[in-house]
Design a protein around this nucleic acid. Structure first.
Lengths: 170, 170
DNA sequence: GCAAAATGGTTTTGTACCCAACTAATTTAC
DNA sequence: GTAAATTAGTTGGGTACAAAACCATTTTGC
């Protein structure tokens, strides 16, 4: 008696039985159609793939965005940085501490406002960023292949729209 | 109104000035065009929005998928469940422990294989799932509005494609 | 039949993250 | 000018997750 006491009448049991067989015949219910759910699955998969790709570089995917943003916006503050890549500022504290300790990032108190730091890359940081950029390119080529060149722009636009609008509606 | 009254005289150019002004004039470099990056931002925003929406229900978004999958696939094992929603099985251990303790999920050793559990919802679990489903519907309506009905199906398909294909490229 | 491999779950360890409370510096309000 | 509010960053508490090492129970090989 494996299972499937539910709806044994209306549904065919053969599919229900197979559900436990550890393969793909699962009923996802409303999830099958939920954008949020698939967004999470896709993100997790992409994240994992990037990490594998960048394993040799020894810098997690989260750090990549951090380095890039500092590199392109020298003097940026931690708060601005946090907002730009969608994380809480407290999340950045240990990350920057680490990046500084490893010699990729320099933090200097601003003259005009001694509360905040000006973040810049060191020469080493720039080198690391270049490595990571190459790595990210490989990764994105892979994603591009999956998404397809025709839909890429549109897809990207929708993602940005979600990030910008969900939450603060109205 | 914020402004940028920093460094009236010194070293910075006008662009540099604006970068610290906490607004959107940042240079995202290659990130601006990276699917992985925007996937992360969109996911984080959506996740956050869902959590806010479901705050009154006192069950995190991650648990929703768990309950749904158990509800639709009674007798499912933890390993299958983990695979179905893209998490490691070890992640589920504390979650299921909690859900069981709260009386939403029942875990029974299988007769045929005493290593694995058969997971089912309790009556209470079914009630909770119904609540959460309503909540998820609201949330997804919001997302649907943002994505737009015309692109929804396509968008969803691409997300699924990413989850399925990235990583184990063939 | 029994050692070895495989499998379901748990434990342990470590990372990434958020939030709320906090410190220090700066702005505002009066 | 000083008290109150605001802002940049840190700290502490807690959740969610993965990876690897680990039991216990099958399953497989011979």
């Amino acid at each position: 008696m494996k299972q499937a006491p539910l709806s044994s009448s209306a549904e065919d049991e053969s599919t229900a039985l197979r559900k436990n067989a550890a393969n793909e015949n699962l009923d996802f219910g409303i999830l099958a159609n939920r954008i949020g759910f698939h967004l999470r699955l896709a993100q997790a998969a992409s994240f994992q793939a990037f990490r594998d790709e960048a394993r040799e570089i020894d810098l997690s995917p989260g750090r990549f965005a951090t380095l890039m943003l500092i590199g392109r916006n020298p003097g940026i503050s931690q708060t601005t940085l946090a907002a730009a890549n969608g994380r809480d500022k407290s999340t950045l504290t240990p990350i920057l501490e680490d990046l500084e300790k490893r010699g990729f990032v320099k933090r200097e108190k601003m003259k005009s406002d001694r509360r905040s730091y000006q973040l810049t890359l060191t020469e080493n940081g720039r080198k690391k960023l270049a490595e990571l950029t190459a790595c990210a390119k490989r990764h994105d080529e892979n994603l591009d292949r999956i998404v397809g060149p025709k839909d890429r722009a549109k897809f990207l636009k929708i993602l940005q729209k979600i990030a910008a609008e969900v939450g603060h509606k109205e």
